[in-house]
């Protein structure tokens, strides 16, 4: 294995152009599996920035990648090697960038391409997820409409690349989502729709405000109190106060 690693890093050092321009499996895999939470040299997202991993020992990096399998799903030996190679590479960040430029539209084997319209319907719950997960709007807002349980996703496409977004939608390895979607994973096709929707928000942002539930609530409370007041309008006072002289 060590020789394999060595070979990989050597190859990537020796032929960066080849790795970036051609089929950079490590970078592609990273974009697909890890980019939802991690970057290399572009700051922390949900998980930490992995730029520093290049200075780790190969064994450490490998065990770290293996540990992440519980988040990202099982990886083959070869995939692990590829990822470790990418992480150990000091130019990993550049390779990623090159990769994402090369693959501007994420490839999905089979199925339709993502549709922003369907994404929106999935987001606000008009269309339910195939595996029964909650609609995004339960916790997230877009353009100020929705819950503030999770972060606002209006500008998420600007912060993360499409591949990262896709990965994030699919892996859902975030605080509350991890448990909530463990039994109800988002399918790849649905993730594609959602990504399309998030990207479309860049061009035409939504500004629908959250319906004024608080105002409705206060109005309802007032109404209820009035109903009680009306229902008991002629309740008994003290009988003693009814005593009077003729």
């Amino acid at each position: 294995m060590a020789s394999c690693l060595f070979w990989l890093s050597w190859v990537s050092l020796a032929f960066p152009a080849l790795a970036a321009g051609g089929a950079d499996e490590g970078a592609a895999l990273f974009a697909q599996k890890c980019a939802g939470c991690h970057t290399i040299g572009r700051g922390a997202l949900v998980g930490p920035d992995l730029a520093k991993v290049s200075s780790w020992s190969a064994a450490d990096a490998e065990s770290a990648v293996k540990r992440m399998q519980k988040m990202a799903g099982p990886l083959t030996e070869n995939e692990i090697d590829n990822l470790v190679g990418l992480l150990k590479d000091t130019k990993g960040g550049d390779r990623l960038k090159a990769q994402s430029e090369a693959a501007a539209t994420p490839e999905v084997t089979g199925g339709e391409a993502g549709s922003a319209q369907t994404g929106r319907r999935l987001f606000d719950g008009r269309q339910s997820f195939a595996n029964g997960g909650m609609a995004c709007i339960a916790c997230h807002t877009v353009g100020g409409s929705g819950s503030s349980m999770g972060p606002d996703l209006s500008g998420v496409a600007a912060k993360m690349g499409e591949t990262s977004l896709l990965s994030a939608c699919e892996q859902t390895a975030f605080k509350v989502m991890k448990a909530a979607y463990a039994q109800h994973p988002v399918t790849k096709q649905e993730a594609l729709h959602l990504v399309k929707y998030f990207v479309s928000l860049k061009d035409n942002p939504e500004t629908a405000a959250t319906p004024p539930v608080t105002i409705y609530g206060v109005a309802g409370a007032t109404l209820l109190m009035l109903v009680i007041a009306w229902g008991y309008r002629d309740r008994n006072g003290s009988a003693r106060s009814k005593l009077h002289r003729r």
Binding site: M134, A138, S148, A180, V213
Partner: peptide, 13 residues
């Protein structure tokens, strides 16, 4: 009042 849609996310959490 602040987090909203608790009726919704409660179902999954």
């Amino acid at each position: 009042m602040r987090v909203h849609w608790g009726a919704f996310w409660a179902a999954g959490t």
